[in-house]
């Protein structure tokens, strides 16, 4: 029954016109990369890697915000979840099924965008080989995997927020806020910890540190620089990122299940 729920969720995403628009946008951004590299003619490998990975991340983020965020909220608003919950489907199975469907959708889109990214990089290398540099295609693939992990974590958070928010718009705001804060807390924390008391008020320092520990650190999943320069990444670093993403997602989903089990579906 969970597979059935996941499959319907995946189909819902595939049949959403917004997904095609977003994927097309990402494709166009990658195509533009080839043109941009022709204008720069320097470190084109790094530029192309940065651009393609940023396009993939941006597209995946849009899918979470415009497709994933409304998925469960809309189910509750329109009461389409009544069919599943009026059967012998435990609420946790329904929720995990919806999450699995959204994760599968993200995986399909990122796989497609990985193909587009690799094609773009191959094209750029063909056209501007002498300026390409040492881009690691293996790391580009790994970087896309970590983008997927990042978005799966953000999806888990959006599932949690959809159970506490009063509307899908509030879920959208909370998810966007989590992304913005989570993407900048590492840099902000380093900044405030290195600053003196005259430069940063203790209250601000405390707030930034609290945000760092409360919100997920999305910077951990950013492998753009390593992929662009072909830098070696330690298995420990990768392993930690993987465990962090999975662990945080499990925590968010566990809390979501607890809340959903208690929720009155009026």
């Amino acid at each position: 029954m969970m597979q059935a729920i996941a499959w319907v969720t995946f189909l819902e995403g595939l049949r959403n016109k917004a997904v095609y628009g977003i994927t097309l946008l990402a494709g166009l951004m990658m195509a533009f990369t080839v043109v941009l590299c022709g204008m720069i003619m320097r470190d084109v490998g790094k530029v192309a890697t940065d651009f393609t990975l940023s396009s993939a991340t941006f597209a995946a983020l849009l899918v979470v915000l415009f497709v994933g965020v409304s998925s469960i909220a809309r189910d509750m608003e329109r009461k389409t979840l009544y069919l599943a919950l009026s059967r012998a489907v435990p609420r946790w199975r329904y929720l995990l099924g919806r999450f699995a469907g959204l994760a599968l959708l993200q995986a399909a889109i990122i796989l497609l965008l990985l193909g587009a990214s690799l094609l773009t990089l191959v094209l750029v290398r063909q056209l501007y080989g002498s300026f390409f540099g040492s881009v690691s295609f293996g790391l580009v693939c790994l970087a896309h995997l970590f983008v997927l992990l990042q978005m799966v974590l953000l999806t888990a958070l959006s599932v949690l927020f959809s159970l506490v928010a009063s509307s899908s718009f509030v879920t959208f705001l909370l998810t966007t806020l989590s992304w913005l804060i989570g993407s900048s807390t590492q840099a902000a924390k380093q900044l405030v910890e290195n600053a003196t008391t005259e430069q940063t008020a203790p209250a601000i320092k405390l707030l930034v540190q609290a945000a760092y520990y409360l919100f997920p650190n999305f910077s951990l999943f950013d492998l753009k620089t390593a992929a662009a320069y072909g830098l070696a990444l330690s298995p420990a670093r990768l392993g930690f990122g993987l465990l962090y993403g999975v662990g945080y997602s499990v925590a968010a989903l566990s809390l979501a299940i607890l809340l959903f089990n208690r929720k009155e579906l009026t």
Partner: peptide, 24 residues
């Protein structure tokens, strides 16, 4: 339910397949 709450992106065949799979 009182008003039909259906996934309208599915066909009737797909919706019934989904409903059937929910019951195993």
């Amino acid at each position: 339910p009182e008003s039909p709450y259906i996934y309208d992106f599915l066909t009737a065949h797909e919706y019934l397949r989904y409903a059937g799979r929910l019951s195993g």
